[in-house]
Simulated scan of single mutants.
Amino acid sequence: MTATTRILVSSETDDLIGRELFSQLDSVEVIPYDPTTTSLDERQRQAEIFVPPYRGTNRPMALMAQMPNLRMVQITAAGTDEWVNEVPDGVVLAGARGAHAGPVSEWVLSAALTQYRQWPALVRFQDEHVWAHRKFAADTLRGKRALIVGAGSIGLAVARLFAVFGTESTLVASTRRDGVHAAGEIPELIQGHEIVVITAPLNDQTRNLVDKHFLASMDDGSLLINAGRGKIVDTNALVTELQSGRLRAALDVTEPEPLLEDHPLWACPGAIISPHSARTVPGTNELCYGVAVEQVKTFMIGKIPANAARAR
C-alpha cells in the first residue's frame, strides 16, 4: 500500500490553482491552511510538504516549527534567500525558478522603454495639460548595449527581448560558460554598456555587488535596472549617483523594502520605482505552481528537485 504524502497549501484565492494542481498527484492529500494563522490544527501539523502562499510568501514562516514531519518546503518565489537560513536541518527547500522569466523580463523591457522614451516626463506634461512637442529628448533601445548580471531564466529572457529591439546583451553569471562571462569579469565589462540589468539571486557573492565602485564605473547617463533583490545594490551609493544626475534607475526592488515614505530614493531625479511587482500579472501564480508541482513530484520519487537551494 502506497503511503499518502500530506501537502499543506494556502487557502487564499491566489493559491486555489495550487491546491487543484497538487490534488492531481497520486498518493497526495492536500490540506488547506490560513497563512495568517499562528497555530495549526492536528491534521495540518502532520504535513510533510509545506507550500507558503503566492502573495506574502514569508508570512507563515513560523509555522514550520509546528510540523514535526516536515521534509520539504516548496515556495512560489524564484529566490530562496529569505528562507534558506530558516528551514530546519534535514528539510529540502526549493523555489519556483523559471516560472517568472516571462513576466519579469517583460517588466525589464517596459522599464527600459519607459526611461528611454521619457514616459515619466510625458505624464507630468500631461498632468499640466502641456503639449510637449520637442520639449524633451527621447531615445531608442536600438544600438544600445546591456550588461545583464544574472544569466538564469530571467536574464536569458531579457536578452531575447532586448535583441528584438536591437539591443546587444552581455551576460554574466557566477561562473563562466559558453556565451556567459564570469562574475569576476564585471569590473572590466561595465564600461561601454548603456544599460545594466540585475537579475541575479541574492547570496554572499551578490550582496552589495552594485556598490559605489560599480556605479562609478558605469558610463555617464546609463541606466541601472534592478529586478533581482534590493540588497544587491548599495542604496546610499545609488542615491548619491542619482542626485548628481549622472545615472538613471528603474527599480522593482529596494533596500529597505518596502521603501519608507520619507526615503530620499523616492525623490531622486531619473528614478522610477515599482513596488516589487514585476511578476505580478494575471497567470503568474499558475506558472509558479506549475513549477512547484514538478519540484514536488521529483522529491516524492526520492530525487533532489532541480530548484533545490540545499538540503541541510
Rank of each mutant, 00 (worst) to 15 (best):
V281D: 08
S39G: 10
K144P: 10
E48R: 10
V158A: 01
H213V: 15
Q191R: 15
H129D: 15
T36P: 01
V73N: 04
D26Y: 01
V293S: 09
D34C: 00
S174D: 11
G230N: 06
R229Y: 08
G102C: 04
R312S: 14
N307V: 10
N58P: 03
K135S: 12
L161K: 13
P68K: 13
S222E: 03
H100A: 10
R246Q: 07
A250M: 12
D204C: 12
L287M: 11
V293K: 03
L238M: 04
S153A: 15
V123F: 14
F50D: 07
P305C: 14
M300E: 08
L265R: 02
V164W: 02
F162T: 00
M64N: 08
G283N: 02
I225R: 12
A249Y: 06
E20D: 00
G90L: 11
K144F: 00
I148G: 07
R229C: 09
I232Y: 11
K144Y: 04
R59I: 05
R142M: 06
G90C: 12
I148R: 09
V291Y: 02
E261F: 11
T298Y: 09
P68C: 08
Q243R: 15
D14F: 05
E188L: 08
A47Q: 08
F214E: 02
V73M: 03
F162G: 05
P35D: 02
A237L: 09
T199P: 06
I75W: 02
S217E: 12
A94C: 11
R55M: 01
V239P: 02
H263A: 12
R97G: 13
D219P: 13
K144E: 12
A146D: 01
D219H: 07
L109E: 03
A151S: 09
G95R: 04
A138W: 09
P275Y: 02
V91D: 00
K231H: 14
S244I: 12
A96I: 01
V196Y: 08
P120T: 00
F22W: 06
G228L: 10
I190R: 04
E194S: 15
A309G: 14
T240N: 14
G192V: 02
H276V: 04
V239K: 03
T167V: 15
A278T: 09
R117F: 03
V123E: 12
R45V: 08
A182C: 07
M1C: 00
T38G: 10
V104T: 11
A146F: 11
I232D: 12
